[in-house]
C-alpha cells in the first residue's frame, strides 16, 4: 500500500512486515478520522452550502427557494454595493502600504537599537494584544469634537481648526482605518524583526567591505532577502483589511458604516443584510463575492511578488 510498506515488505517476513504497514495505515486514518469529519462538516459542506444559498431567496422566516442569479443581479445593480466595494478597496489600498511602510521603518531602526530594545519593542507590540471591539470605543472617543475629543483638543492647542473625523464622508474612513493599522503594527514589526535577524551578518560585512552605502545595502541586500517576509505580510495584512469589521461596527453604532455609508465595508454589508434585514440568500451572494475578491487579491499578490 504505502511506500514504507512496499520497501519493508521486500526485506523481511511478508506477513509481519505488511501488517506493520497496515497498522501504520490504520493509525494514520485513525488519527485523521475526527479531524476529517470536522473539515467535511464544518468547512467543506458549509462552503458548498454558501454557494447554494446565494442562489436562493432564503430569509430567516421563509424557507429557501431557488431564484437563479437574482441575488447577484440585484447586488450588481445596487449602488450601495459599489460604494461598499470601493470602501473595501480603499481600506486595503491605504491600509496595507501605510502599515507595512511604518512597520518596516520601525523594525529597521529598532533592529539596530540595543538600549531598552525590549521595552521599546513592547510599546509597539502592546496594541496588537488589544481587543478591536474595545479599542474602537477608545478611538471613537478620541475623534469627538471639542470639548471632549482628545485629538481635536490637541489640534486646538496648536491653533488648528477642529476636524469632523467620523462626521465627514472623506475623513471617516481613514479615521476608522487608523485603529486597525495601529493594532496591526506590532505584529508586522515583530515579523520584520525576525526577517531581518534571519539575514546572515556576513552579507552585511561583505557589503561594507565593498564600500556600499547604507542605502545601497538596504536596496541591494536587505529588501531582496526580506522578500518572503514581505510576501507573507502583504497577503496577511491585505486579507485583514479586506475583512475589516469590528472597528467599523463599534466606532459608529448609531449609524454603522456611516455617515452616508462612507465607511461601510463588505463584511458589514453582509452582516446587515443577513442579521438586520434577514435577507440570508442575498447576504450569501455577498459572501461569495467577498470570497472571489479575496481569492483574486491573494493570487495576484502572490504572482506579483514572486515575479519581481
Amino acid at each position: 500500500m504505502s511506500v514504507v510498506a512496499h520497501r519493508e515488505a521486500t526485506t523481511g517476513g511478508f506477513w509481519s512486515r505488511t501488517s506493520l504497514g497496515q497498522k501504520q495505515l490504520i493509525w494514520a486514518w485513525g488519527f485523521l478520522a475526527v479531524p476529517l469529519l470536522f473539515y467535511v462538516v464544518i468547512r467543506f459542506w458549509p462552503t458548498f452550502q454558501a454557494f447554494y444559498l446565494s442562489v436562493t431567496d432564503w430569509t430567516i422566516t421563509k424557507p429557501a427557494e431557488f431564484v437563479g442569479l437574482e441575488n447577484y443581479k440585484r447586488l450588481f445593480a445596487d449602488p450601495l454595493f459599489w460604494q461598499v466595494f470601493r470602501n473595501t478597496f480603499v481600506y486595503l489600498i491605504l491600509g496595507t502600504p501605510i502599515s507595512l511602510m511604518i512597520s518596516f521603518i520601525v523594525a529597521y531602526y529598532l533592529d539596530r537599537v540595543r538600549f531598552m530594545h525590549t521595552f521599546i519593542r513592547a510599546l509597539y507590540f502592546l496594541p496588537f494584544l488589544t481587543t478591536a471591539a474595545a479599542m474602537a470605543w477608545v478611538w471613537r472617543w478620541f475623534y469627538q469634537p471639542v470639548p471632549i475629543g482628545v485629538i481635536n483638543d490637541v489640534l486646538a492647542g496648536f491653533g488648528i481648526p477642529q476636524q469632523p473625523f467620523l462626521r465627514s464622508t472623506t475623513q471617516a474612513l481613514p479615521a476608522v482605518l487608523a485603529p486597525a493599522v495601529w493594532a496591526g503594527l506590532g505584529f508586522q514589526i515583530i515579523i520584520f524583526l525576525a526577517g531581518l535577524r534571519a539575514i546572515p551578518v556576513t552579507y552585511y560585512e561583505a557589503a561594507r567591505i565593498d564600500g556600499l552605502s547604507e542605502g545601497a545595502i538596504l536596496r541591494k541586500i536587505t529588501l531582496p532577502l526580506l522578500k518572503p517576509t514581505l510576501v507573507f505580510l502583504v497577503v496577511f495584512s491585505s486579507i485583514g483589511f479586506l475583512r475589516i469589521f469590528d472597528q467599523v461596527y463599534n466606532i459608529n453604532t448609531n449609524d454603522p458604516g456611516g455617515p452616508l455609508n462612507s465607511t461601510k465595508p463588505l463584511v458589514l454589508m453582509i452582516y446587515q443584510t443577513a442579521f438586520s434585514s434577514y435577507e440570508m440568500g442575498y447576504a450569501a451572494a455577498q459572501t461569495v463575492v467577498l470570497f472571489l475578491i479575496l481569492l483574486v487579491i491573494s493570487l495576484v499578490q502572490l504572482r506579483l511578488m514572486r515575479d519581481r
Binding site: 464622508t169 449609524d255 456611516g258 455617515p259 452616508l260
Partner: peptide, 17 residues
C-alpha cells in the same frame, strides 16, 4: 431601521455633503 436610516442619510447629505 431602514426607514430611520433614510432619514439619517437625508440629513447627513445636507449637513455633511
Amino acid at each position: 431601521l431602514a426607514q430611520r436610516q433614510v432619514a439619517i442619510d437625508m440629513v447627513n447629505r445636507v449637513l455633511i455633503g
